[in-house]
Simulated assay, not measured.
Amino acid sequence: MFGEATVDGFDASTHVSGGDPGAPAPRRPFRKYFRETGWRHLVGIVMLVFAGFPLLYVLSASLNPGGTLLTANGLFRTLSLDSYVELFQNPSQPYAAWWVNSLVIGVATALGTVFLGALAAYSFSRMRFTGRRFGLLTLLLVQMFPQLLAFVAIFLLMSAIADIFPALGINTQIGLIMVYLGGALGVNTYLMYGFFNTVPASIDEAAKIDGAGHARIFFTIILRLVAPILAVVGLLSFLATFGEFVIASVLLIDPSRQTLAVGLYQFVSSQTQQNWSVFSAGAVLAAILPMALFLSIQRYIAGGLTAGAVK
């Protein structure tokens, strides 16, 4: 009986469903759709509008030659590139130099943070020594206090260093990079430590059998396996440094050595002359590079941030 049903082409699943298996599923009622998934789309649209409107407003203000934010209430009512041209024409406010300074300081800080953080994370993850757990916990607790709380102490410290080593004191980009590296080591080390623990220790043991030391294992094997977290830490460090204002405004005095955040503030800091249009144009140009970096390595971000939470 069952063999005859099979030969005749009888399909129990098709017969029960009452339709062609290749036919599309019936549409859900709107209330059921909205209750299950539709409300998520609505929340996503609201958040997209909430996040995108300030960007559109700044872009509209940069194309409005009026110079005030009040005249930019009508989005894209007036379109002009005068603010972008004016941005590069004032020698006392060298926007191009600010952009280069921010790029150099951001890249140097990101590379230094990745290198030092990876060394520390590898040591805490692979080596066993006295005070290892206490040192890791202390490093994390100390970094819970932001640099903003210590900018007075940082200023006094850099002033004292300038008397001995002028190249590392106040108004030097190298000194600013050193301050950034000291403040970014703790959290990034702890983040990398969790990712390093996901790499099997058997890889290190196999390399040691072949005669490789810790340095060779770290540079030739481990760094390649933890590339996602290196990209994440480098990106986060670069973005934080590229837009940092408080510490940079305290340590950098010469306009030719200032960063973008400090330099752009000059356009709106005066009580008698505030050019918000030029400020918005500078902000738009400053956001292009971070956005491009974020989009180019965003595939590493999710994996790099979540893989370290396995252990």
Rank of each mutant, 00 (worst) to 15 (best):
V104I: 13
G66A: 15
L87N: 09
N90L: 08
E36H: 11
L69I: 14
G74F: 13
R31Q: 09
L59W: 05
L103F: 14
S83Y: 10
T78I: 14
L63P: 09
W99P: 00
F30P: 06
A108L: 15
L81Y: 08
W98C: 05
I105T: 00
D11V: 10
P29L: 15
S92P: 04
V16R: 02
P54K: 04
P29G: 15
G66Y: 14
N73T: 01
K32F: 04
F30E: 10
Q93R: 13
G22D: 12
F10Y: 14
R40W: 09
I105H: 12
L87Q: 07
T14P: 02
L59G: 02
A61L: 13
L79K: 00
D11I: 02
G106D: 13
F76W: 07
L111S: 10
G44M: 14
R31H: 15
A96V: 01
L42T: 01
T14C: 05
Q89A: 15
Y57Q: 12
P54Q: 05
G18F: 14
P54S: 03
N90A: 07
F50M: 06
V43M: 09
S62D: 03
V49Y: 05
E86P: 00
Y95I: 02
P91A: 03
S102T: 13
T109C: 13
L48V: 03
V58T: 13
N101L: 02
L69M: 05
Q89P: 04
D82V: 07
Y57I: 04
K32A: 11
F76L: 15
V85A: 15
Y33M: 08
S80V: 12
E86A: 10
P21Y: 06
S92G: 09
K32I: 00
S13T: 03
N101D: 00
D11K: 08
Q89H: 07
P54M: 06
A96K: 04
L79A: 03
L55T: 11
L69H: 01
V58W: 05
N73G: 06
P94G: 01
V43D: 01
L59P: 07
G74A: 15
N101C: 02
I105N: 05
L69W: 09
S92Q: 13
T68N: 07
G74H: 10
V85N: 11
G67R: 11
R27W: 11
L69C: 09
V43W: 12
L79Y: 00
W39G: 07
Y95E: 00
F50R: 00
L81E: 00
G18A: 13
S92V: 03
S80K: 12
